[in-house]
Computed example of a mutant assay.
Amino acid sequence: MMRIRARTVGLALIAALLPWAAEAEDGNWFSNMLKYGGTTVPPSQGPDLGEVYCPTIDVGENGAALRSYGGRADDNAALRSQITLGRLARECVRLADGSVSVKVGVEGQVLLGPQGRPGRFEAPVYFTIKAGDQTIVTRARKVPVSIGAGEAQGLFSVIEDNLVVPRPLSESYEIGVSLHGNPGKAAAPRKRKKAPANAAVPTESAPGAAQ
């Protein structure tokens, strides 16, 4: 279930952003581009061998919009730009070893505010795959967006693929997309150094302690 609660930024912005509420859709030209590399569906190639778990994309609370201000935050008159997520699509493919490769597509727009000026912008898009509290994969992309002179908005799209979910977690994972926060890196197993033969065994540090 997607949890999106974008705050109001004025009547003009609301009218422009209504068609761009982030949503996961299947069967449209965007999902066809994601799956087939084109806007049309190719002839059927036969059924897939077995079903693949492919959850809908989750956009966390406040993750669908990112605003930049030229003055006091939350002052509509000082708004420079707002980046907003649009349509979302995903594709999940079972690999030979039983793991799942996930591909995620994102559309969005950059809208100028009262203090905004045309130019080049970057939309920070974060992709995360988790299973419960465990982070499996994280990716961050900065997507360039251009707004020309006399224009009020610019559109962008990005596709991130090869997000691999290991076989043991391939039936219980979640796909997340957001415009906020650095996802960092997925946790990796620690390698313990071997102690000298005559040395005392060191006490293992607590999880999260500095190395």
Rank of each mutant, 00 (worst) to 15 (best):
9 V>I: 14
201 V>L: 12
118 P>Y: 04
206 A>R: 08
132 G>H: 00
78 A>V: 00
91 E>S: 15
136 I>P: 07
88 L>M: 04
121 F>C: 02
125 V>Y: 01
168 P>C: 04
169 L>A: 03
27 G>R: 05
29 W>T: 11
135 T>C: 10
96 A>H: 09
14 I>D: 11
182 N>S: 11
20 W>F: 09
124 P>L: 03
35 K>V: 13
138 T>A: 15
91 E>D: 15
94 R>C: 05
141 R>G: 03
1 M>L: 04
104 V>E: 06
192 R>Y: 14
71 G>R: 05
165 V>M: 01
109 Q>A: 15
157 S>C: 12
176 G>A: 12
155 L>G: 12
26 D>Q: 15
195 A>P: 03
201 V>N: 06
170 S>E: 05
23 E>D: 13
42 P>Y: 02
142 K>Y: 08
80 R>D: 00
91 E>F: 10
7 R>K: 15
35 K>G: 10
185 K>N: 13
105 G>R: 00
10 G>S: 04
73 A>N: 14
114 P>V: 03
122 E>G: 08
26 D>K: 11
177 V>L: 08
125 V>C: 04
49 L>N: 15
5 R>V: 12
130 K>C: 04
136 I>Q: 06
74 D>K: 11
122 E>Q: 14
104 V>A: 01
98 G>N: 02
199 A>H: 08
27 G>L: 02
205 S>R: 13
99 S>W: 01
111 L>P: 01
176 G>N: 15
39 T>W: 15
6 A>G: 12
209 A>W: 05
41 V>E: 11
133 D>L: 14
7 R>I: 13
14 I>Q: 11
146 S>Y: 14
64 A>F: 04
141 R>K: 14
18 L>D: 04
52 V>T: 15
145 V>G: 02
128 T>N: 08
66 L>D: 04
56 T>N: 11
151 E>F: 07
125 V>G: 03
115 Q>R: 14
1 M>G: 12
140 A>G: 10
152 A>I: 10
12 A>H: 03
179 L>H: 00
183 P>E: 03
113 G>I: 01
104 V>G: 03
200 A>T: 13
136 I>Y: 05
24 A>V: 11
39 T>N: 11
39 T>P: 15
73 A>I: 13
82 Q>W: 02
179 L>W: 00
14 I>V: 12
184 G>V: 07
7 R>D: 11
141 R>W: 05
94 R>E: 07
62 N>F: 10
22 A>V: 06
167 R>M: 08
113 G>T: 06
209 A>T: 10
86 G>P: 00
44 S>V: 06
16 A>F: 01
69 Y>R: 00
50 G>T: 09
27 G>P: 03
17 L>K: 08
83 I>W: 00
164 V>W: 04
135 T>P: 13
138 T>D: 06
175 I>T: 04
119 G>F: 06
